[in-house]
């Protein structure tokens, strides 16, 4: 069951979406990985924007 508290984050530059529930296995982020647990040095896999330039959004 998906945890209703899972959040969705979006890159401001290119629109890439990170859903905590799904993770991003191609980035080594397992489903359920929380945004807070992703290292601050992580960058957007599509455009290289830093993690600090993501916004939390409602899908």
């Amino acid at each position: 069951m998906a945890d209703p508290d899972f959040k969705v984050w979006q890159c401001r530059t290119c629109g890439y979406i990170y859903e905590e529930a799904l993770g991003d296995p191609s980035e080594g982020l397992q489903p359920g990985t929380r945004w807070a647990d992703i290292p601050d040095t992580w960058i957007c896999p599509t455009c290289g924007t830093p993690k600090s330039d993501f916004d939390m959004i409602e899908l």
Binding site: T13, C14, G15, S26, P45, T46, C47, G48, T49
Partner: peptide, 19 residues
């Protein structure tokens, strides 16, 4: 897969119309 091409560029100028 994966298919991480650079046809839309990358960085701050990455294509605005890609979606």
């Amino acid at each position: 897969t994966p298919n991480k091409h650079v046809a839309f560029g990358y960085g701050a100028h990455i294509c605005l119309g890609q979606h």
